[in-house]
């Protein structure tokens, strides 16, 4: 098996079946050093199965995975020394405080930089003295992120990391991910939320029904990434003016309301709309499935 020198994660024919349920079938994937890799798919697509196999929590029916060039099963302990993990359905010890959780997990890692943990807690606005049982789901998620980041791992595997985080903390999380990437560390994060992946990822894999449907650079996917925009204007607007803009299509006008599809940057649309008296503006994110069909429909 040849592994690219740059591949932090190398997955070769990974398959996991539970009886007649095919959770994952013949997955082949490389994730490179310093990359922020998005792992996208609807619920039940096999994202968590992939992650749990990489972490050696479940064993593949066939195929294998290498992390840092080491076998994910045979060398699991050595891999986990350099890996930070945030499970999708995070459970922590309810009777412990945030600090107790970190101290416990830190001791299992042979010690932890408490100053850095304090910094992370400050940035994520986490009260570490609170008992886990008294934490909201968002606070537990923050604690989960802190334990995943606290030892500055070379590889972060995050399963739906922003689930339950409020928008402000999500922004902090995106900053942290960008910092980690700039330090040459690698992030593998699953999500079913395309805008989130769009924020931080360099490449994205799309999983459907346990099979890898596509691996694309985010910049390529963005070319077809569109939104539906609706503008309610005070007075009539000329649909032709909007239609003439790059990336705008399918314009319809009715009683001062314009609805159209925008692909790429919003800037030209905003500048044109600013010439009118805008009463309301809304836009809808497309589903992952729609983007996927769009991408492969056009290619």
């Amino acid at each position: 098996m040849s592994v690219s020198n740059n591949a932090v994660i190398h997955i070769e024919g990974l398959t996991k079946h539970y009886g007649s349920v095919h959770a994952l079938t013949d997955l082949r994937l490389d994730v490179h050093r310093g990359e922020v890799f998005g792992y996208l798919g609807p619920n039940g697509a096999g994202k968590t199965t992939t992650i749990r196999t990489l972490l050696d929590l479940i064993r593949p029916t066939s195929g294998s995975a290498q992390i840092f060039g080491l076998d994910s099963h045979q060398d699991s302990v050595r891999i986990r020394e350099r890996l930070g993990n945030l499970p999708g359905e995070l459970s922590l010890w309810n009777h412990m405080t945030g600090w107790e959780v970190i101290n416990y997990l830190g001791e299992l890692r042979g010690g932890v930089d408490k100053h850095y943990v304090g910094e992370l807690a400050d940035r994520l606005d986490m009260d570490m003295s609170r008992k886990v049982k008294a934490c909201s789901s968002g606070m537990k998620r923050k604690l989960g992120l802190i334990q995943a980041l606290m030892h500055k791992p070379d590889l972060l595997i995050l399963d739906e990391p922003t689930n339950g985080l409020d928008p402000l903390v999500q922004q902090t999380f995106y900053s942290l991910i960008r910092e980690i990437s700039s330090e040459g560390r690698t992030v593998f994060m699953s999500s079913h939320n395309l805008p989130e992946i769009e924020h931080v990822c360099d490449r994205v894999a799309i999983l459907r029904g346990g099979r890898l449907a596509a691996v694309e650079r985010m910049s390529d996917l963005k070319k077809v990434y569109f939104r539906w925009m609706t503008l309610r204007l005070d007075g009539d607007a000329a649909p032709q003016a909007f239609e003439a803009l790059d990336g705008v299509s399918d314009v319809t006008a009715h009683n001062g309301t314009l609805r159209f599809r925008v692909t790429g940057e919003l800037d030209p649309v905003i500048k044109l709309a600013a010439q009118y008296h805008v009463i309301d503006m809304t836009y809808e994110e497309p589903t992952l499935e729609t983007i996927f069909l769009e991408f492969y429909g056009e290619n």
Partner: peptide, 14 residues
């Protein structure tokens, strides 16, 4: 059953 084993086995212990 609680799910804490996933976090525990995320650390470098066999």
């Amino acid at each position: 059953e609680r799910g804490t084993l996933d976090v525990l086995l995320g650390t470098p212990i066999p």
